[in-house]
Write a protein that binds this DNA or RNA. Structure first.
Lengths: 219, 219
DNA sequence: TTAAGAACTGAATCGTGGTTCACTTCTTCC
DNA sequence: GGAAGAAGTGAACCACGATTCAGTTCTTAA
C-alpha cells in the first residue's frame, strides 16, 4: 500500500475545497444563483469542472454547504448584536434589527440569495433553518421582555416572524430603500421604530450613537 | 381577399387565449412556476405547444400577463377591504391585512408565486409593481390616519413596506402558520395586533364578527 | 366549390448546464 | 526508481425545456 494520505495532502485538499466554496459564495453574492453555474465556480476557483465533483457530491450539495455556512455567520451576528446584558427587550430587538439591516444593505445580493431567491429543495431546506434561526433569536428576546413585564403579552414566535418579514421586505425586497435610492440610515431608523412599536416596547429613540455602536458588530 | 376575420372567429381566438392563460394560472397555483412548462400549459389548455406561441410572444410573455392579471385581482381585493368609510386608520389597515391573509392562506402556492418565487426578469418587473401596489394601498391609509391625527408621525411608505413584509413572512413564507400546522386564525389575529401596534394605532381588538365580515371580501 | 388566408399541430431543433469518465498528473512509500 | 493509489482534467454525454416551422386543417368570401 504505497500511498497513504498525509497531513500535507489533507491540508491541500481542504484548501481546494475551500477555494471552491469561496468561489461559489462570491459568485452568488455578485449575481445570485444564476450567476454560479458549476463551470463558473470551477473557473473562479482555478480548478477543472470535474474537480468540483471530487469535493462535492453535486451542485446542490455544494450550494447547501455554502448557504449553510453563510447563514450561520449571519445569525451569529444577530445573536451577538442582541446580547446586551441588562438592556431592555426593545433596545435589544432594535440592535438586532440594525445589525441585520446593515449587513443586508452591505451585501444586498447575498442577503437576497439567502432569504428569498429560490433554488432547489436541498438549499430551500437550509433557508428554512435560516429564517427560523432569525425568528428564534428575536423570539427569545421577546420572551424575555414579556416575562419581565417590559412587553405586552403576545405570541412571541408570531411577532418574531413578522419582524423578520418586515426587515426582509424593507431591506432586501424590491421595496427596500437602496433599490429606490433613498437614504438607508433613514430607512433603518423607520424600520426600527416600526418594529419597536410593533412589539409594544415603550418607544425608545435610537440615538445615532448607539446605532453606530451596533453597526460595528458587522464583522 | 377571401378570408376576413369575423366576430365568431375573434371570439374563438380570445377563448383559446384565455384557456391558455387560465391553464398557466392553475398550474402555477398548484405547483409554482416549475410546474408550468409550456408543454404542460398546452396540454392543460387542450392545445398544441405551437398554439401557445401563436397567442403569446414567449413563455415569459404569457407568464407576465398571467401574473399581472392575478396581481390586479389581489390588490383590488385589498383596496376594497380597506375602503371602510368613516373607519379609523387602524381598523382599515387591520381589514386589509385580514383580507390579504385570508386570500394568501387560501391560495398559498399562488401567493408565494406572486410574492416571492423567482422567475425571469419580465415577470420580476410585474412582481415589483404588485408589491408596490400593496404598499401604496396601505401607505394611503396610513397617510390618512397620520393627517387625521389618529396615528403618530411616521414614514408612511416605510411603514407600509414593513407591513407588507410582515404579512408576507407570516402568511406566505416558510414561517407561516399553516406551514407549521398552527391555527391560521390565531396567526392572523397575532399579525393584526402586531401591525396595529406597529403603525401606532390605539389598540383595537378585532372582533370575530368584523373578521368574518372582511373574510367575505375574498371573491 | 374553391382560392386565400388564418389557425393549429407536434416532431425536430437548439441552447443551457449538470454530471460523468477515460485519461493524465501528482504523492507516497518500499 | 517504480508501483499503488489519489487527485485533477475537460471533452463528451445527457436531460430538460423553450422555440421553431413545414405541413395540415379550418374559415371566409367570392
Amino acid at each position: 500500500m504505497p500511498y497513504r494520505s498525509t497531513k500535507r495532502t489533507e491540508a491541500r485538499k481542504a484548501a481546494v475545497r475551500e477555494r471552491i466554496s469561496n468561489a461559489a459564495r462570491e459568485l452568488i453574492a455578485e449575481g445570485g444563483y444564476a450567476n454560479a453555474p458549476v463551470a463558473a465556480v470551477a473557473a473562479r476557483a482555478g480548478v477543472a469542472v470535474g474537480t468540483v465533483y471530487r469535493h462535492f457530491h453535486s451542485k446542490s450539495g455544494l450550494f447547501a454547504e455554502v448557504f449553510s455556512a453563510a447563514s450561520e455567520h449571519e445569525v451569529e451576528a444577530m445573536r451577538e448584536a442582541t446580547a446586551l446584558p441588562g438592556a431592555a427587550a426593545g433596545e435589544r430587538v432594535a440592535a438586532g434589527i440594525e445589525a441585520f439591516a446593515h449587513r443586508a444593505l452591505r451585501g444586498r445580493r447575498l442577503a437576497w440569495a439567502l432569504l428569498a431567491e429560490p433554488v432547489d429543495p436541498a438549499v430551500e431546506a437550509e433557508r428554512l433553518r435560516l429564517r427560523r434561526s432569525y425568528r428564534d433569536v428575536i423570539a427569545a428576546v421577546l420572551a424575555d421582555g414579556i416575562e419581565a413585564g417590559e412587553l405586552p403579552a403576545q405570541d412571541a414566535d408570531a411577532s418574531a416572524a413578522a419582524v423578520v418579514g418586515a426587515i426582509g421586505e424593507a431591506m432586501v425586497g424590491p421595496l427596500s430603500p437602496t433599490a429606490n435610492g433613498a437614504d438607508p440610515e433613514a430607512a433603518i431608523a423607520a424600520l426600527v421604530s416600526f418594529c419597536t412599536r410593533a412589539i409594544g416596547a415603550t418607544t425608545i429613540e435610537t440615538t445615532p450613537a448607539n446605532r453606530m455602536e451596533t453597526a460595528n458588530v458587522n464583522a
